[in-house]
Amino acid sequence: MLAKDKQVLTRGKKIGIIVAAFAALLFVSILSIGMGTADASFQEIIGAITGRVSKGGNYHILQNIRIPRIVTGVLVGMNLAVSGVLLQGVLRNPMASPNIIGVNAGAGLAAISIMALFPQSIQLITPASFIGALLASLLIYFLAAKTGQKSSTVHIVLAGMAVSALLNAVTNGIMMINSDVLDVTFSWTLGSLSGRSWSAVNMILPYSLVGLVIAVFISPKLNLFELGDEIASSMGLRIGLYRVVIIMVASLLAGSAVAAAGTIGFVGLIAPHIGRLMIGSDHRFLVPLSALLGGVLLVFSDTLARTVFQPVELSVGIVTAVLGAPFFLYLLKNMQRKEG
């Protein structure tokens, strides 16, 4: 596969595609900043970004509401997309993504548990979400390993859906039992960027930086995983060590995304697959491209969520589900045909 990718696209062309994706992310982000109940001009947008405008007109809306919301959306989209790439690579399964195999559900359960049991310790939500995502990831992996079906698309998807349904049921139960003390809205369970301020950016940014940098650094190892465990081991790859590290990084990224914006689905499925269509399966290029595409997808989806039905605002998770569900069914049908 890698040899084929090199024949189709040169290294320079792949880098060019990544640069184009970065430009697209900037364009979508700037466009989103200017759209809403109060539209803003390009001059106002640039002024709010640089801080060179007087504090009047749309300055407060742009500087303190829209810009931090969009920055949070970019980081959440990047985290979910790269988490999907890592899970797909380490499990050698193109259908693996944080929401489908229950990673988001594990993070959501951990976050809700902290909110219900330790409401005064809000700073624990992100690390707890990471632990919940990690435990869910490991559970799915070991369930697949026990049955000897680690590479089976249908088996991992079904196991993930079962675990996700169980974890979501427990989460909903905790929310109902603690409805009098739990300050969680229904939109959070669907995934929402509404009301995200600079504190949300500060919360997710360190986890994003650490996770994304490590993901880029270990991306060449994912190429070896595609060759199979035996061949990868013969080439010197420490399979067990890197499998644990990659799952931990994927969980860190997904958990921090859930802590910041709730359980948003399908970004970790759509972005990596679009990236493969554009650039091939070489993870050295696929990881950064998927991150940028994830940011574009989530910012675009959130813009639709808050503008299409003004003044009513949808949860961004609804939009990503509408976009992602048909995409998931299409991929599942193709994978079943290949396995059959």
Rank of each mutant, 00 (worst) to 15 (best):
A23V: 14
G295Q: 05
W198L: 11
V184T: 12
V319R: 00
N223I: 01
F42K: 10
F225A: 00
G36K: 00
I270F: 11
G89F: 08
H155E: 11
T153C: 08
V103A: 02
V90R: 04
V85Q: 05
T147G: 14
G16H: 07
L75S: 04
A257S: 09
V8M: 14
L109C: 11
R337L: 13
S251M: 08
T153L: 06
L134E: 03
F118G: 12
L135I: 13
L332A: 10
V8R: 15
P206Q: 03
A110D: 09
A24D: 05
L212T: 00
A271I: 10
G262V: 03
S234R: 08
H273D: 10
I214Y: 05
L269M: 08
Q7F: 13
M203Q: 08
V216F: 09
L323F: 12
M278E: 08
L237G: 01
D282Q: 08
P288R: 06
S151H: 14
L109F: 07
I177A: 13
E226R: 11
V312W: 03
T303Q: 06
I30T: 07
E339I: 06
D302T: 02
T50G: 08
V28T: 12
L212N: 07
A261I: 04
I122S: 15
M78H: 10
V8D: 13
T171I: 12
F130M: 10
Y207L: 05
D183G: 13
V216Y: 10
G106A: 01
A215W: 07
V308K: 00
V210P: 00
M95A: 09
S164I: 11
I174Y: 09
R306S: 00
I122V: 15
G148W: 04
V163K: 09
S251I: 00
A40G: 11
L167E: 03
V245E: 08
K333H: 15
I274A: 05
G262R: 00
L314I: 07
L314E: 04
V154Q: 12
F22M: 13
V53W: 03
M176I: 13
V210Y: 06
G108K: 02
R337M: 14
D39G: 13
S32Q: 02
G89M: 07
V312T: 12
Q310M: 14
Q336V: 14
T263S: 15
S197N: 10
G340R: 13
T263V: 11
P68G: 02
L209P: 09
F327Y: 12
L212P: 02
A110I: 05
I33T: 12
A159F: 13
V181H: 09
K338C: 12
F328L: 13
I65L: 12
S121V: 14
I264N: 05
A136I: 01
R337T: 11
I100N: 00
K4L: 15
A96V: 11
P326S: 06
L31K: 08
H155D: 06
N64Q: 10
F327N: 04
I33Q: 01
L222D: 04
L109R: 03
M203W: 02
L138M: 14
F309W: 11
R238V: 09
